[in-house]
Protein backbone atom coordinates (compact mmCIF):
# COMPACT_ATOMS: atom_id res chain seq x y z
CA UNK A 1 0.00 0.00 0.00
CA UNK A 2 1.15 3.49 -0.83
CA UNK A 3 0.13 4.67 2.63
CA UNK A 4 2.82 2.69 4.46
CA UNK A 5 5.59 5.07 3.35
CA UNK A 6 3.73 7.93 5.00
CA UNK A 7 3.16 5.98 8.21
CA UNK A 8 6.86 5.09 8.48
CA UNK A 9 8.05 8.67 8.12
CA UNK A 10 10.07 10.04 11.00
CA UNK A 11 9.42 13.64 12.09
CA UNK A 12 13.12 14.24 12.67
CA UNK A 13 14.30 12.55 9.46
CA UNK A 14 15.97 14.01 6.39
CA UNK A 15 12.82 14.80 4.35
CA UNK A 16 13.56 11.87 2.03
CA UNK A 17 14.52 13.95 -0.93
CA UNK A 18 17.26 15.41 -3.02
CA UNK A 19 16.47 18.97 -1.94
CA UNK A 20 18.76 19.10 1.11
CA UNK A 21 21.48 17.13 -0.66
CA UNK A 22 21.48 19.62 -3.54
CA UNK A 23 21.20 22.61 -1.20
CA UNK A 24 24.23 21.46 0.81
CA UNK A 25 26.33 21.22 -2.38
CA UNK A 26 25.01 24.47 -3.88
CA UNK A 27 25.69 26.44 -0.70
CA UNK A 28 29.17 24.83 -0.50
CA UNK A 29 30.00 26.04 -4.02
CA UNK A 30 28.71 29.57 -3.23
CA UNK A 31 30.87 29.72 -0.09
CA UNK A 32 33.96 28.33 -1.82
CA UNK A 33 33.67 30.85 -4.70
CA UNK A 34 33.03 33.71 -2.25
CA UNK A 35 36.06 32.71 -0.12
CA UNK A 36 38.40 32.77 -3.12
CA UNK A 37 37.01 36.08 -4.46
CA UNK A 38 37.11 37.79 -1.03
CA UNK A 39 40.70 36.56 -0.51
CA UNK A 40 41.60 38.03 -3.92
CA UNK A 41 39.88 41.35 -3.07
CA UNK A 42 41.76 41.56 0.25
CA UNK A 43 45.06 40.67 -1.45
CA UNK A 44 44.55 43.41 -4.06
CA UNK A 45 43.29 46.19 -1.75
CA UNK A 46 45.23 45.16 1.38
CA UNK A 47 43.02 47.13 3.81
CA UNK A 48 45.33 48.10 6.67
CA UNK A 49 43.16 50.62 8.53
CA UNK A 50 39.67 50.42 10.03
CA UNK A 51 38.29 52.79 7.35
CA UNK A 52 39.70 50.68 4.50
CA UNK A 53 38.51 47.41 6.09
CA UNK A 54 35.00 48.78 6.70
CA UNK A 55 34.87 50.18 3.15
CA UNK A 56 35.41 46.68 1.71
CA UNK A 57 32.20 45.37 3.32
CA UNK A 58 30.27 48.65 2.90
CA UNK A 59 30.61 48.23 -0.89
CA UNK A 60 27.19 47.29 -2.23
CA UNK A 61 28.33 44.33 -4.33
CA UNK A 62 30.53 42.85 -1.62
CA UNK A 63 27.81 43.45 0.98
CA UNK A 64 25.31 41.53 -1.15
CA UNK A 65 27.66 38.60 -1.71
CA UNK A 66 28.78 38.59 1.94
CA UNK A 67 25.15 38.28 2.98
CA UNK A 68 24.64 35.53 0.39
CA UNK A 69 27.71 33.81 1.90
CA UNK A 70 26.26 34.04 5.42
CA UNK A 71 22.84 32.73 4.37
CA UNK A 72 24.53 29.88 2.48
CA UNK A 73 26.67 29.16 5.53
CA UNK A 74 23.65 28.97 7.86
CA UNK A 75 21.66 26.73 5.50
CA UNK A 76 24.73 24.53 4.96
CA UNK A 77 25.32 24.37 8.72
CA UNK A 78 21.69 23.39 9.32
CA UNK A 79 21.98 20.35 7.04
CA UNK A 80 25.38 19.34 8.44
CA UNK A 81 24.45 19.76 12.09
CA UNK A 82 21.11 18.01 11.53
CA UNK A 83 23.05 15.06 10.07
CA UNK A 84 25.20 14.97 13.21
CA UNK A 85 22.10 14.93 15.47
CA UNK A 86 20.54 12.20 13.30
CA UNK A 87 23.69 10.06 13.56
CA UNK A 88 24.29 10.29 17.29
CA UNK A 89 21.05 11.32 19.02
CA UNK A 90 18.50 8.51 18.98
CA UNK A 91 15.64 9.61 21.33
CA UNK A 92 13.11 11.43 19.11
CA UNK A 93 12.18 14.10 21.69
CA UNK A 94 15.79 15.09 22.38
CA UNK A 95 16.62 15.05 18.67
CA UNK A 96 13.63 17.25 17.85
CA UNK A 97 14.63 19.68 20.62
CA UNK A 98 18.17 19.89 19.21
CA UNK A 99 16.81 20.42 15.70
CA UNK A 100 14.62 23.29 16.90
CA UNK A 101 17.47 24.87 18.90
CA UNK A 102 19.80 24.59 15.89
CA UNK A 103 17.24 26.25 13.58
CA UNK A 104 16.54 28.97 16.16
CA UNK A 105 20.26 29.73 16.52
CA UNK A 106 20.85 29.82 12.75
CA UNK A 107 17.81 32.03 12.04
CA UNK A 108 19.04 34.37 14.78
CA UNK A 109 22.56 34.42 13.24
CA UNK A 110 21.05 35.29 9.83
CA UNK A 111 19.22 38.29 11.33
CA UNK A 112 22.40 39.26 13.19
CA UNK A 113 24.48 39.07 9.99
CA UNK A 114 21.93 41.24 8.16
CA UNK A 115 22.01 43.79 11.01
CA UNK A 116 25.83 43.93 10.95
CA UNK A 117 26.03 44.39 7.18
CA UNK A 118 23.18 46.87 6.68
CA UNK A 119 24.41 49.16 9.42
CA UNK A 120 27.54 49.79 7.32
Amino acid sequence: MGGSAVINRIVVGAHYGLKDWVAQRATAVIMAVYSVILAAVLLVFRPSTFEAWQAVFANGVIKFFTFLFFVSLFYHAWIGVRDIWMDYIKPVGLRLTLHVLTIAALVGYAAWAAAILWRL
Partner: peptide, 15 residues
Protein backbone atom coordinates in the same frame (compact mmCIF):
# COMPACT_ATOMS: atom_id res chain seq x y z
CA UNK B 1 29.19 25.80 13.85
CA UNK B 2 29.81 26.04 17.60
CA UNK B 3 32.07 29.06 17.14
CA UNK B 4 29.64 30.95 14.85
CA UNK B 5 28.61 33.44 17.56
CA UNK B 6 32.28 34.20 18.26
CA UNK B 7 33.01 34.61 14.54
CA UNK B 8 29.99 36.89 14.02
CA UNK B 9 30.83 38.92 17.12
CA UNK B 10 34.44 39.42 16.01
CA UNK B 11 33.30 40.36 12.49
CA UNK B 12 30.81 42.83 13.92
CA UNK B 13 33.46 44.42 16.14
CA UNK B 14 35.89 44.68 13.22
CA UNK B 15 33.51 46.58 10.88
Amino acid sequence: FLMLPVILWLFQASV
